[in-house]
């Protein structure tokens, strides 16, 4: 979503983005002329008249599980966004019985919070696990 019109979205997709991504952008390119939606999400910059790089993870119940906002010159890390979605999906499927520690990604150890884990995280989780192998 940006403040550009759907007409500019079409031109950008058809003339540039479709040359980077086969078939063009696979999701809706939303238009927020005036920034009213961006204002509701707290990421519209009225001085510059544009939306900043906000990214919101919304779960199947419509609840915001996470967000990130960057100023314009720095791009997002898509893999990190997908990792966070995978982590939230795992937590949701486990109905909150599992949690994903720092650096978790699919295949890595999860934590099972409970009385037995108090003071014992050091036994099952090492700081090296916070980093990619």
């Amino acid at each position: 979503m940006s403040i550009d019109s759907v007409f500019v979205h079409k031109m950008w997709n058809d003339n540039e983005l479709s040359k980077m991504v086969k078939g063009g952008v696979p999701f809706p390119m939303l238009s927020d002329a005036g920034g009213r939606v961006g204002t509701a999400y707290g990421i519209y910059d009225p001085d510059a008249g544009v939306e900043t790089r906000g990214r919101f993870i919304i779960d199947p119940d419509g609840i915001i599980q996470g967000f990130e906002v960057l100023t314009p010159p720095v791009g997002r890390n898509i893999a990190e966004s997908l990792r966070q979605v995978q982590a939230f999906q795992l937590v949701r499927e486990s109905k909150g019985t599992q949690a994903t520690p720092s650096g978790w990604k699919p295949g890595k150890t999860t934590l099972k919070p409970g009385p037995d884990l108090v003071g014992k995280v050091w036994e099952v989780w090492k700081t090296s696990m916070a980093f990619d192998d």
Binding site: M1, S2, D4, E51, T52, F56, I58, D59
Partner: peptide, 19 residues
């Protein structure tokens, strides 16, 4: 309309900008 799905809502400064 996206209730029931995991949704990513992304804002960005503008079309034809560089990042």
């Amino acid at each position: 309309e996206y209730l029931g799905k995991w949704t990513l809502l992304c804002f960005y400064p503008g079309d034809f900008t560089f990042v």
